Measured scan of single mutants.
Amino acid sequence: LRTVEMKKGPTDSLGISIAGGVGSPLGDVPIFIAMMHPTGVAAQTQKLRVGDRIVTICGTSTEGMTHTQAVNLLKNASGSIEMQV
């Protein structure tokens, strides 16, 4: 596991798309980074990659989380965001 910290302002975009989660079209698979926009906050860290499994978001485990719950957690996060992948 590695921990990645990002700074995100209220109008900034992380610039990632995620897939997976409980009840997702892919089945109940762990949440992972499906796409990254090169100008997004996540890409700027140069520490995240497409395919990385997201284990925690700001200390909250993604295990058993639906896709929608994970998306909302990421969208609503601002300031210092910590992810374990």
Rank of each mutant, 00 (worst) to 15 (best):
Q46E: 12
I81L: 08
G51T: 00
G40S: 06
M36Y: 00
P30G: 09
P25W: 04
G51E: 04
T60R: 15
K8F: 14
K7S: 10
S61V: 06
F32T: 14
R2D: 01
I33V: 09
T56Q: 12
I16V: 07
E5Y: 15
T60N: 11
L48P: 03
E63F: 09
T39P: 04
G9A: 09
S61E: 08
G64M: 07
T11C: 10
M83H: 02
N76L: 09
D12V: 06
P25C: 10
H37T: 14
G40E: 03
I81S: 02
T39R: 13
T60L: 12
L73G: 02
T3C: 07
V55L: 13
M65Q: 03
L14C: 06
T62C: 09
G59Y: 00
Q84F: 00
A34W: 07
P38T: 07
L14F: 12
G59C: 04
S13K: 14
I18Y: 04
G59R: 05
V22S: 08
M35V: 10
H67N: 14
L1D: 05
G64E: 07
V85L: 05
V29G: 08
V55T: 10
K47Q: 14
C58V: 03
S80T: 15
L1E: 03
Q46H: 11
C58L: 07
P30C: 07
M35W: 15
S13A: 13
V41F: 06
E63C: 09
E5C: 15
G23C: 03
R49D: 09
Q46L: 06
E5I: 15
N76H: 13
I31G: 04
E63S: 11
L1G: 05
I18R: 02
K47W: 04
I54D: 01
S61D: 09
Q84P: 04
V41A: 10
M6K: 01
I18W: 04
T66Y: 00
G51Q: 03
T60M: 13
L73K: 10
T60F: 12
M35C: 14
M35S: 15
D52M: 08
G59D: 05
R49N: 14
L26M: 13
C58P: 05
V85T: 09
K7H: 14
L73R: 07
I16L: 14
A19V: 07
Q44T: 08
N76P: 02
S13Q: 14
G20C: 05
V29M: 10
G23M: 01
P10I: 11
Q69T: 13
E5W: 10
C58T: 05
R53Q: 15
Q69E: 15
G79N: 08
V22A: 09
Q44W: 05
A70E: 01
V22H: 09
V22I: 14
T3D: 06
S17T: 15
S13E: 15
D28Y: 01
I31L: 14
T62K: 01
V41E: 07
N72M: 10
T62P: 03
T39A: 13
A70G: 07
V50R: 04
I18Q: 03
L26I: 13
M83S: 02
T45H: 07
V55A: 12
P25M: 09
G79M: 01
P38K: 08
H37A: 12
G51H: 05
